[in-house]
């Protein structure tokens, strides 16, 4: 007998007293493993404590009380007015209403999202249209003449000598 079988005997002892064969196995195991004697004794002592714990007191009229409680439940159910179709509609009317509202909201969200997207695109198109005449791209012919391109951004310089002449005392 090994330790696992010893554990099995402990489990069995929790369910029922050991039979003669199991007792023999146990005695042989404990003779070979005296250090396990205390563990076995503790298990048996706990078994005894738990087994001798008295039953919880149950009143002799417990069943009668349960049956009376069942009858009270049934009477209460019978007293509760059965819902007519109008009551039923009133009771359940919030459910379809909530469902419709939820579906409507769920349907409106993509609609408004799409409207917002279209509005944004329109605004972008208008902005581009406003900017495009200002930012004209130079023609190919102009680009071929580098010198002309270079001068594009330059102002003609004033003829300072001529201005000086005009400013001479009259």
């Amino acid at each position: 007998m090994n330790n696992e079988q010893f554990q099995q005997l402990i489990e069995q002892s929790q369910r029922h007293p050991l039979d003669a064969a199991e007792e023999r196995q146990l005695r042989a195991f404990l003779a070979a493993h005296p250090e396990r004697q205390t563990a076995w004794d503790d298990e048996m002592a706990l078994n005894r404590l738990l087994a001798r714990l008295p039953d919880a007191p149950v009143p002799s009229n417990f069943t009668a009380q349960v049956l009376a409680a069942v009858e009270r439940e049934e009477a209460a159910t019978a007293r509760t007015p059965q819902p007519t179709w109008t009551n039923w509609l009133r009771l359940t009317s919030w459910r379809p209403a909530t469902l419709v509202a939820t579906l409507a909201l769920a349907g409106l969200i993509p609609f408004f999202a799409e409207r917002h997207r279209v509005h944004q695109r329109t605004q972008l198109a208008r902005s581009l249209a406003a900017v495009s005449p200002v930012a004209q791209v130079p023609t190919v012919e102009m680009l071929q003449d580098f010198e002309a391109i270079r001068r594009l951004g330059q102002r003609a310089r004033a003829d300072e000598d001529l201005l000086t002449l005009f400013q001479l005392p009259q």
Binding site: D55, A56, P57, V58, A69
Partner: peptide, 26 residues
């Protein structure tokens, strides 16, 4: 009734409540 009462009475601190609960179980 006895096993149910045993389990409930050893789980709840109040015996009267255990009995009420056992009735509620049934």
């Amino acid at each position: 009734r006895q096993p149910v009462m045993n389990v409930l009475a050893r789980s709840l601190p109040d015996a009267a409540e255990a009995e009420d609960l056992a009735q509620a179980v049934f």
